[in-house]
């Protein structure tokens, strides 16, 4: 299959803001005049909600289950500024194999000549949480995407999930898998959040490509069922997303990350635990400037 457009996978721990970030990047790219497809790779199938005003969209796998012939128009809808929204869908929680579902959905989209038909400039895959099994690594395997970004807060579990993604990239990159574009810091509130993400990035040979602070504007836009770009286009956050989108669109700075081992990651977290405690209680270490 000839690749049309840049294909970008966005990973991150569940609830960390992947869909919000991805949708805002899609919206910003569309606003800049690009043709964009966003594919939600999550059984929850709510990745593209804010791009299409929460309208009903049958998922790829819903259509596959029906067993009828599937047409692109049945499983896609154009949202904000023409972003083509697609949801892979999946089984109900606790049943079946969602990983296989992602695999089948991506294969089906290729069979339907989605990319040749739509001719996108950018395709964004919003992928469920940790890389829990082979199925969730499909978007970064076999040359489907050539770059992945990970959304992470400064919480340990989010960084743990990012480290897991690095492991998957590290494994698949040598065999034509995707490389890492960088870390998108999201929902950052504490003063030290940025420093934690930067430190993790430098330890793993990667970098942070943008920081999205925690904000009421994001929550409000979500509640309106819209992206920040659409609901609050003049806000500071809309510009943050535009800048992020521009970087992702233009950057060719891709790396194969060096994930930390389990023990190293734990030790690294513990060091930060000490640092944060000292910071909050006012202990100043030797050589630490205030």
């Amino acid at each position: 299959m000839a690749k049309v457009g840049k294909h970008i996978a966005i990973y991150g721990k569940g609830g960390i803001g992947k869909s919000t970030t991805t949708s805002n990047i899609s919206a910003a790219l569309a606003e800049a005049g690009y043709r964009v497809i966003q594919i939600g790779c999550d059984p929850k199938s709510d990745s593209t909600n804010t791009l299409r005003g929460n309208t009903y969209l049958p998922t790829v796998l819903d259509s596959l289950r029906e067993g009828n012939k599937i047409h692109l128009e049945d499983i896609s809808v154009e949202g904000f500024k023409g972003v083509l929204c697609i949801e892979s869908g999946g089984p109900v929680p606790g049943v079946g194999c969602a990983g296989r579902g992602i695999n089948a959905a991506v294969s089906l989209l290729q069979e339907l000549n989605l990319f040749e038909e739509f001719k996108p400039d950018y395709v964004l895959y919003d992928v469920l949480g940790d890389v829990v099994c082979g199925g969730f690594a499909v978007p970064i395997r076999d040359g489907i995407t050539d770059r992945a970004y990970v959304v992470s807060s400064s919480d340990f579990m989010a960084i743990y999930a990012a480290n897991n993604l690095f492991k998957a990239i590290n494994k698949y990159a040598p065999s034509n898998g995707a490389k890492l574009g960088g870390i998108i810091g999201n929902g950052l509130s504490a003063g030290y959040s940025k420093a934690i993400i930067d430190d993790f990035a430098s330890k793993t040979g990667t970098k942070a490509v943008g920081y999205v602070p925690r904000s009421l504007v994001v929550s409000q836009s979500e509640l309106y069922g819209k992206t920040v770009i659409e609901a609050n286009p003049d806000s500071e956050h809309a510009d943050i997303y535009r800048k992020l989108a521009k970087y992702i669109a233009e950057s060719e700075d891709l790396v194969v990350p060096n994930p930390l081992g389990v023990a190293d990651l734990r030790d690294w977290a513990r060091e930060w635990g000490d640092k944060i405690y000292n910071l909050e209680t006012g202990v100043i270490g030797a050589g630490e400037a205030i």
Partner: peptide, 9 residues
């Protein structure tokens, strides 16, 4: 395949 994805019970 659909029984694998959605469960075959």
């Amino acid at each position: 395949e659909r029984h694998v994805i959605f469960g075959g019970a």
